[in-house]
Amino acid sequence: MLKRTLRLAALFALVLLMPGLAFAQPKEKVTISALPFISTAPIFIAKERGYFDAEGIDLDIKIFNAAQAVAVAVASGDADFGITAFTGGFFNLAGKGALKVIAAQSREEPGYNFVAYVASKKAYEAGFRSPKDFAGKSVAITTVGSSFHYNLGMLADKYNFKLDSVQMKPVQSIPNMMAALSGGQVDATILPANNALKLEEDGTGKIIGWVHEHTLWQLGALFASSKIVKEKRPLVERFVRAYQKGLADYAAAFLAKDSQGNRMIGEKALALMPALEKWVQPKPSIDTVKIAANYMDPQGRLLVKNIYDQVAWNQAQGMVDKSVKAEDFIDLSFVKGHFDVPKK
């Protein structure tokens, strides 16, 4: 009898303490499509640390294995949110009005090694030492319109060589790119840090530069279906808040530097490992995370102008429809303080 009274009292206290949250509003079911990579870490962290729960969101993470599929899942209505890298395909989908970019994911930031230009041993020995000299070289990329393709495009613009003079070899996947370079079938490729270091370790490739040393750009974003942005604005706002908390934790754990500018991976990083181990494929160790953890804006702010540039570049290559306008698929209202916002 006493037990029962106590329980009732506890319940009563809860109702008093959490007005309007747990009871008046049952948690909303929300789905996000994502890749099982460290670049999705803020979502994983926010989920595991209960930041979404605190915002009244019951988040279901759907894992895909290609950036394309992540965007298609949102466009087709199978997911409410998505988080992945920009590609030509992404812009074409976004241009159809099915999704809105709302916050930043990875970007190239000075001092943070993320994606490397790798020369084959042979090309390196023949004098290929700088990303300025890509003209006339053969380069393995995943696909036409991929971020690797865009990296080359930016280099071509910056160092005044013709992109046409680079022989692009689309080979569909990163393992194929590594195989093509190791086998000496291409002069160069562009790889994420862990893959690039692996090639250097094997002695088949040589890193000749990092992307952030040459071109800075916004790699990816958090986006939502246009429908949910229009119809459930408060939900999107809550979602972004939880995401930002995840981002902040991520930045504090993996992006901090000491006075010499070296990255510090310490207690905070270790504390986040269980969340990453649960979601990231293949299962990461603290050492792999140390290499692969890429820069993300701690508040989710976008390099807006760069996204406009990306769209324009893709259009110039004939890969994105001329009718696509970046301003139509970016919604700047969920995050404050975006960078380089072009004036209308």
Binding site: G88, V144, V171, Q185
Partner: peptide
Amino acid sequence: EMIGADTGIGAFVLAAGNLMQ
């Protein structure tokens, strides 16, 4: 044409698929 082809109908279809065209 999935591997290392930039021309060809197959490469074209694959690229169009990747670009969502």
